[in-house]
């Protein structure tokens, strides 16, 4: 589904990603772990199409299409979803409005009719109940005045409404207390599906106790220095990131 080949990326002239290779098949959950400054968030933003990154080499294909040639919204329509590390506050735009606009965009791209407003609302409300979110959040401005946990839940809500095929979760566990982490993780687990893949970008192993990855990759210094199964995360947790530097795969 997603093929990243030899991806090199510069930000303001400095090389941040130095040849990333990653293959993700439908239904797989990949965790990308790494120390701060390793390029994890850059990789997330590249997939979502944020401006300000210079791709100097390599390619990314998504369902056989050149992802890097697609606009930000085209990627969303085609099924890429980035759950932000710091969800953006959008004053004056209500949650329900953004959800409807987003879903309409996705449905239109996929040749589907617009959902009737009432069907849409009941669908969203059901998903909110799953995430233990109060309905009043629907009519509040997107993320404005939300706590850290509420913002992350809101990201998962958007993800469940839009039902993307590739979910990229950028440090979704940061700033969450244990209860919120559980709710968010359960929300993600509910979305697991043979046709849907996940990239979990995280600093800590903690999230992976709740969302079991199929693969774990260690990103350090702009490269994937080690890949393995879930046991790699535990090993990292026990030995620290310095252990990776000493045991680079050649």
């Amino acid at each position: 589904m997603l093929k990243i080949k030899n991806l090199h990326v510069k930000v303001e002239g400095k090389e941040i990603l130095k040849g990333i290779n990653l293959d993700i098949n439908p239904g797989e959950v990949h965790a990308i772990m790494g120390p701060n400054g390793s390029g994890k968030s850059t990789l997330s933003y590249i997939l979502a199409g944020r401006a300000g990154y210079e791709i100097t080499e390599g390619s990314v294909s998504f369902h056989g299409k050149d992802l890097l040639e697609m606009s930000v919204e085209e990627r969303a329509w085609a099924g890429v979803f980035l759950a932000f590390q710091y969800p953006v506050e959008v004053p004056g735009v209500s949650n329900i409005y953004m959800l409807k606009a987003a879903l309409n965009g996705v449905r239109k791209y996929n040749g589907l009719d617009q959902l009737d407003a009432m069907d849409f609302i009941s669908m969203v409300k059901e998903k909110m109940r799953d995430l233990d979110m109060d309905e009043k959040f629907l009519y509040r401005a997107v993320n404005e005045g939300f706590s850290g946990g509420e913002k992350k839940r809101n990201e998962i809500l958007q993800m469940s409404v839009l039902a993307p095929s590739l979910c990229v979760l950028d440090e979704t566990d940061s700033g969450l207390d244990i209860d919120a982490l559980k709710i968010v993780s359960e929300g993600v687990n509910r979305l697991r599906d043979p046709s849907r893949s996940f990239i979990l970008v995280t600093h800590y192993q903690r999230l992976l106790d709740y969302i079991k990855p199929d693969f774990v990759h260690v990103l350090a210094g702009g490269e994937i220095v080690k890949s393995g199964g879930p046991e790699l995360a535990l090993e990292l947790e026990a030995k620290g990131y310095s252990w990776v530097d000493d045991n680079k795969e050649s």
Partner: peptide, 26 residues
């Protein structure tokens, strides 16, 4: 706000729509 435009587009609002939404909200 460019960040807000990016956020809305990343959810599936096209660029014009995202700008309209933010202007309207203002």
């Amino acid at each position: 706000d460019e960040t807000a435009i990016f956020y809305l587009r990343s959810r599936g609002a096209d660029e014009k729509m995202a700008k309209n939404m933010l202007t309207f909200a203002f």
